[in-house]
Amino acid sequence: MFRPQPRLTGMLPVLGLFLTLSSTAHAHMTVEGAGEIVNGVLHPLLTPAHVLILLALGLLLGQRVPLDLKRPLRVFAPASALALALTTTGKIPSVYQPMLIGIALCLGILVGLAVKLPRLGSGVICAVAALGIGLDSAVEIGSSFTVFKTLFGTWLSLNVAVTYLAICASHGADKPWARTGIRVVGSWIIAISLLVLAFSLRKIK
């Protein structure tokens, strides 16, 4: 089995800090001076709703002992590729944001309860998460090649982020304090999602 490097866990605060980036940074933005691939890589990491889902999914997969990423990634990688490809057709409506938060809420509950999902369940969760994030990552401007490069960067970023977070989480599987910490993060994701859903409902009202 792959043994993660202890230093990998040190990246968690760095990823957490991405959540602090302000609102102007997250909506299909482009970082001036950065190439298309880099912009694609940064997109899910600078979109708070995507970060929440990726964080929750990574932690959920990492809670499973022993770590088995092959099966979930066999679903997540093609599903995210499919969703990103669908955005290029221009016929897919934009994803309803509370739906993304709803996915994060479900994942947060599973992390908080430390649920051991069956293979089918984890496959479905991965597919839903991948489709949600992928369909919300449309690139609106640029030539076909530019769009392709950006979406490739996004796809790479999504898969690396989930894999990395799962490996980090699995590293703490034998440490009670780390398992507790993961569940606490899950409860935070639940709380954040509930508050955001309430804000969304208020806007509807």
Partner: peptide, 10 residues
């Protein structure tokens, strides 16, 4: 921005 607000709050 409700989401970043909620993140900070929690």
């Amino acid at each position: 921005n409700p989401l970043t607000y909620a993140v900070g709050f929690v």
